[in-house]
Simulated assay, not measured.
Amino acid sequence: MVLLEHEKFFAELTKLFYSAREKGTVRMTVKRYDGRTKPEPRVGKEPLPTPVENMCLIRATCRSKKISTIVHGQEVKKFHQKYASLMRSSMDALKKQRKPKTKSKAAH
């Protein structure tokens, strides 16, 4: 998985959306991230320091391509606004699902 800066993440995410237009799915996951890159130590060993600020780890996958970025607490609003505008611009290719017409019982 590739960890990117925000601008590069949005550029790659745009590419993922366009590659998935004809056929495919882009999956986004958001989870809390405390900055640790090592697992919790076993009982009896020195614990890891507690994180100072809250962060989010955001991942996007499409087929075998995976990208991710880390958003700090102060940047969440700015990141979300940019993400929302990207989503609005990328949803123009969605097709409206047509439901098959069924015969009503009242017509018989």
Results as ranks from 00 to 15, higher is better:
H80Y: 00
E5N: 13
L86M: 04
E22D: 15
H80R: 12
R21T: 12
A60M: 00
A106M: 13
A84K: 14
E22T: 13
K95Y: 01
H108E: 13
F79Y: 08
K101I: 10
M28S: 06
R32I: 05
E75D: 15
A93N: 05
E7S: 08
H6D: 00
K82R: 14
Y33C: 10
P47E: 03
K82L: 07
K38Q: 12
L16S: 00
A107K: 04
A106T: 15
T14K: 06
V43K: 08
V71S: 02
T102D: 06
A107G: 03
S85K: 15
L48T: 12
K77I: 15
K15M: 03
K95V: 14
K8C: 05
T14V: 03
F9R: 00
D92K: 13
K66L: 05
K78E: 14
H6L: 04
R63N: 09
E75W: 01
V30R: 13
I58L: 05
K77G: 14
T14I: 03
K101F: 06
A93S: 04
K95L: 08
E5P: 10
E12Q: 14
T25W: 06
K65H: 05
M55N: 13
T102N: 11
K65Y: 02
R32H: 02
T69I: 05
L3K: 04
E53V: 09
L13I: 06
P39W: 01
T50Q: 10
T25D: 05
E75T: 10
K78H: 07
V71G: 00
